[in-house]
Simulated scan of single mutants.
Amino acid sequence: MKTLSLTILGLSALALAPAAQAVAPSYTIVDLGVIGSGEFSQAFGASSNGSMVVGRSSDNHDQAFSWTSQGGMVALPNLAGRNFASATAVNNAGIAVGVSSTTWFGTSPLPVMWNKNGTVTELAMPQGFSSGAAYGINASGMIAGTVSSGTADRAALFSANGSSLITATTANGSYMTTAFGINDAGLVVGIGSDPSDLALNVGLVYDSVTGVMNSVGALSGNNSAINFGLSNSGYVVGSSAFYQGDGRPFVWSAAHGMVAIDLPEATSLGSASGVNDQGWVVGNAGGLYSVPFLYADGVTYSLQNLLSAGSGWDFSTNTSASAMSIGNDGSIVGTVVHNGQTHAYQMTLAASVPEPESWALMLGGLGLLGGLARRRRQAMSA
């Protein structure tokens, strides 16, 4: 009740207070390194609490890895006869998922899971499908990905008990071909096809509990979308375009629909790849170079501008840099060029920065509470 009262008082004061300016978050950064004598590494995913990062380290083959601040980068085993693997996602329990292939180019991919003890398991696929990949895992161990029969791709769910195709469709028959993420509530996001226009990308959200499939629509002036990530709080992010044209990043929620994310300077297209429970979004914008960005509290920041100048980290003048995932602690992971080397990284929020609205609510509420207290003391002494 005290919290509710403070919020109500803060809302009253907000109408009288001038708008606060957004404060850029402050970050530190760590180079995650490589496995052995690897030539480069890339981070593709992180646990929602930010404690574990997964990706791949490459030299003459691709080695999936997991990384923690305590243990550093650890190689994850390959399937027998397959020397190319990438870990794409991991949950807070340390269970990672990804794909194992026979070549660097992803030939004959198989969906795999790495257990907490580091052992690798090939995930069973539905009958009639011979290849696939795993892209997301939630707290209960449900895995989202895709499978292929050689002629068609379909979104699928995997678990320790087997796998199943996602067969639900929207009202107009659109179906999901690849599932890129799944949250703890069982919501699945991905890309789909519209049977009336197969050239159209459809951004879809599937509720695995109710079995209902819905489309997120598209940004104004566009007619297609791809959903790449979602949070446990229900935010969905991706890219919206006109057919196969240049995409624009967006964040979607059931309450507010699809909202366009402003691009960083000197870029003309982009896509959002990860979002946390607070609605902070990371992604990659393009122009001459790849420019990873953070969208926080309505403001877009180039990651380069969140680091000290002259530090050796290049997020703005190469085509390799990326921002793939953001944790609820604000940590960001992806790939960057560091002193000439292409390596996986983790950026860590140096200090908690309240949203501008939160500052106004807090200060306004405390101010009104202080005024009420003074009047109460004056009344008692009269």
Score class of each variant (00 low, 15 high):
residue 178 T to S: 04
residue 178 T to K: 03
residue 178 T to G: 00
residue 178 T to A: 03
residue 178 T to M: 01
residue 179 A to R: 02
residue 179 A to W: 02
residue 179 A to Q: 03
residue 179 A to C: 07
residue 179 A to L: 10
residue 179 A to Y: 05
residue 180 F to E: 06
residue 180 F to C: 00
residue 181 G to M: 04
residue 181 G to H: 04
residue 182 I to F: 01
residue 182 I to N: 07
residue 182 I to H: 10
residue 183 N to Q: 05
residue 183 N to K: 06
residue 183 N to M: 09
residue 184 D to R: 06
residue 184 D to S: 14
residue 184 D to M: 06
residue 185 A to H: 10
residue 185 A to E: 09
residue 185 A to S: 15
residue 185 A to L: 10
residue 185 A to I: 00
residue 186 G to T: 00
residue 187 L to F: 10
residue 187 L to D: 04
residue 188 V to E: 05
residue 188 V to M: 05
residue 188 V to R: 08
residue 189 V to G: 07
residue 189 V to L: 11
residue 190 G to T: 07
residue 190 G to P: 03
residue 190 G to Y: 08
residue 191 I to E: 06
residue 191 I to M: 07
residue 191 I to Q: 08
residue 191 I to G: 04
residue 192 G to H: 11
residue 192 G to A: 09
residue 192 G to L: 06
residue 193 S to R: 12
residue 193 S to L: 11
residue 194 D to N: 15
residue 194 D to Y: 14
residue 195 P to V: 14
residue 195 P to K: 13
residue 195 P to N: 12
residue 196 S to Y: 11
residue 197 D to C: 06
residue 199 A to C: 01
residue 199 A to N: 14
residue 200 L to T: 12
residue 200 L to A: 13
residue 200 L to W: 02
residue 200 L to K: 15
residue 202 V to T: 12
residue 202 V to H: 02
residue 203 G to K: 10
residue 203 G to Y: 09
residue 203 G to R: 11
residue 203 G to E: 07
residue 203 G to S: 11
residue 203 G to N: 06
residue 204 L to G: 04
residue 204 L to N: 08
residue 204 L to P: 07
residue 204 L to Y: 10
residue 204 L to I: 15
residue 204 L to D: 10
residue 206 Y to I: 01
residue 206 Y to W: 14
residue 207 D to N: 15
residue 207 D to L: 03
residue 208 S to M: 01
residue 208 S to W: 02
residue 209 V to N: 13
residue 209 V to C: 06
residue 209 V to H: 13
residue 209 V to R: 15
residue 210 T to Q: 09
residue 210 T to S: 15
